[in-house]
């Protein structure tokens, strides 16, 4: 039976969880996955597999990695400790895919991977691009102004990513609250924005750059209770005038630059102790 789940997980975590042996690594762009697809039927993989996933399979022939490649998967994990064929390894090296093997059987591997607390709800926006270098991961997201229906989804995604990286709950909570407030500010006051999250072992750094009406008086905007939200927005419970003060309270560092009628740039930093 094919099993799908949506994850954004570093391959390193998968290796740990499955106690996997790495046959081909290809670390640069291939070291995270956005889904897991478990199947031994390659036509299933081609029909239902989502790009960016990892294939978990008991099919040991070279067809496994070829199908995974066709479905734009990042790599393959073989179950029951099978030694992959040389042809498979060669193909993976050429195509920049990873190959792992684990002693677990399919059920055991699925259970272990399902235990990851990093399930991303399908509605969550995809990270636009991911760049990774030494101990540093960067994600970018887009937010549309006035989109109250999906407001909060970027923050939800960021929280899941931070959780999957393994930060302390306390810092994740502070980061989640801050990004939520920044996201709501964009939804209320800007046309659109780009959010960049950089996570390292030293800090969590979030930049939100929006195109919008800007902030005329930053000191005033920092005062609790000051808000330019509309009546309609307030009726929904937004615009309490606590957004920026909330970010300041939770962040280790907050920098705001704004130009009226152009936009606002907010940088939020959390130091890892």
């Amino acid at each position: 039976m094919p099993v799908t789940a949506k994850y954004i997980v570093e391959v390193k975590r998968i290796q740990e969880i499955l106690n996997a042996k790495t046959w081909v690594s290809n670390i640069s762009d291939s070291d995270y996955i956005t889904g897991i697809y478990a199947s031994d039927l390659m036509s299933d993989v081609l029909a239902y597999g989502k790009p960016g996933s990892m294939l978990l399979t008991g099919l040991y022939s070279v067809q496994a990695i070829i199908s995974a490649y066709m479905a734009e998967f990042r790599g393959v994990a073989f179950i029951r400790n099978k030694t992959p064929e040389e042809e498979t390894l060669k193909f993976a090296r050429e195509k920049g895919m990873f190959v792992l093997s684990t002693a677990s059987d399919m059920y055991d591997a699925c259970i272990k991977l399902a235990g990851l607390e990093t399930v991303i709800p399908e509605e969550a926006p995809e990270a636009e691009k991911i760049h990774k270098s030494d101990n540093l991961t960067t994600y970018t997201f887009k937010i549309d102004g006035n989109d109250f229906a999906s407001a909060g989804m970027v923050s939800t995604r960021v929280k899941a990513i931070l959780k999957s990286i393994g930060y302390e709950p306390e810092i994740i909570r502070r980061a989640a609250i801050s990004i939520y407030e920044a996201e709501m500010n964009v939804v209320m006051h800007a046309r659109k924005a780009e959010v960049t999250l950089t996570a390292s072992d030293k800090e969590i750094y979030i930049i939100v750059i929006d195109e919008g009406k800007g902030i005329g008086d930053i000191d005033l905007a920092m005062q609790e209770g000051y808000s330019t939200a509309t009546e309609e927005q307030r009726a929904l419970g937004f615009g309490a005038g606590m957004g920026l003060p909330n970010i300041k309270k939770n962040a280790d560092k907050l920098d705001i630059n704004s130009v009226v009628d152009v936009g606002t740039r907010i940088e939020i930093t959390f130091h890892i102790k």
Partner: peptide
Amino acid sequence: LSDVMSNAKAGNLWVTIQTHKNIVA
């Protein structure tokens, strides 16, 4: 919502009359 985000603690029951989707996030 900002008040809840700022002051509610993990594990709290949140009592409200808001019902739009954003309460879930």
